[in-house]
Amino acid sequence: MPTVKSLEDLKRIREEALQKRQVKAASGEANIVVAMGTCGIAAGAREAMKAILNLIETENIPGIIVTQTGCIGLCEREPIVQVQVGEQPKVTYGKVTPEIARRIVKEHVVEGKIIEDHVIPM
């Protein structure tokens, strides 16, 4: 990352980052975001994350970016996983076990079917 020396620098970096993100979204790339606050990890977010990464690797599924985020406040519904495919609206899943995590990749991301039972209405 370059050093920021002025507000203009900051604005430029922000624009570039935004553009990068839009290009990714436009290419239909899927984003899976696992909430990894202390509460999420305690509830099993690492296991969910591992299940997702393993499946992507073993089945060699392209076009998925897996990242983490903090707690959103719904500690009781952890582990929480958010999925956004391309420019479609974001879907939030709660109480994601490794099994559900694998289903999210297979059914939601690959086949495009939202797993309604586990969605948290936001």
Binding site: M1, A17, V33, T67, Q68, T69, G70, I72, G73, I80
Partner: peptide, 11 residues
């Protein structure tokens, strides 16, 4: 919180 990746300054 719960939206961005806390390890990414870019976000």
């Amino acid at each position: 919180a719960g939206i961005i990746d806390p390890t990414s300054i870019e976000e």
